[in-house]
Amino acid sequence: MTMSEQVPGTHNATQPVPDRNNATTGTAGGHWMQVRDVAAYYGDRMAISEISMTIKPRSTTAIIGPSGCGKSTFIRCLNRMHEVGLGNNRVTGSVLLDGHDIYGRSIDPVQVRRYIGMVFQRPNPFPSMSIYDNVVAGIKLTRSPSRTELDETVERCLNQAALWDEVKDKLKASGASLSGGQQQRLCIARSLAMQPHVLLMDEPCSALDPIATYKIETLINELKRQYTIVIVTHNMQQASRVADETAFFLAGEERIGKLVEFGPTNQLFTNPTDPRTEAYITGRFG
């Protein structure tokens, strides 16, 4: 399926974010992101700073680093989830999606999240909804699609998430009745239903066993043909298995996470330029 065949998006046409059917040329139809000098704060405490990187279209970018290096904070800055909650969390710098700043003055964070999907550390299907309703929960927020369109979306997304064959006979069952790995793939299907430009994954396998992890990794390698993926992982083998490019984050003495090194995954793991990267990937600290 190509992008142009997909059902028209749910966004408001007046939004400055570009129409998904008019994908930027020169990026093979994929969507790219650019992070410029981003810093994130929890109240007054700075958690990450001076982060800049370019996320290539239709590829997987991994964020690795020890606990507390701000990698989860960083990925939550990419779809404006960092500022959610009652605390006074804020972000400075800019994050571009296809050249448009998602932190721009006129931008609605709610609209941003429709373009940049997110999968969380622990599978979080909505337990009061069926598997079917979980998948279409997002698209039902903004419009009331026909039954046929909903059916098609459910089948397409569950297929993309490699879950269709396992659940096609029990779509009415609760999302919570699935195993952990199936739940996480359901959450991926739920994000895909929004036809996001970019899919963010925050340690998607940390609560899963090795077999479920393997399935998700295979899925990521499938999905990146169509989507731009950013994945946070504490598992360096996972980064080397799924990522085209890898960013290594590290927090210094002042506990502010910084980007130490960013480059093609192969190069970062075999021939790192920064001694701290080398120390981390060889297991000498972190």
Binding site: N79, M81, V110, G117, F120, N124, A137, L141, T142, C187
Partner: peptide, 8 residues
Amino acid sequence: EGMLALGA
């Protein structure tokens, strides 16, 4: 957050 991430 799961619902917010879907654009709610």
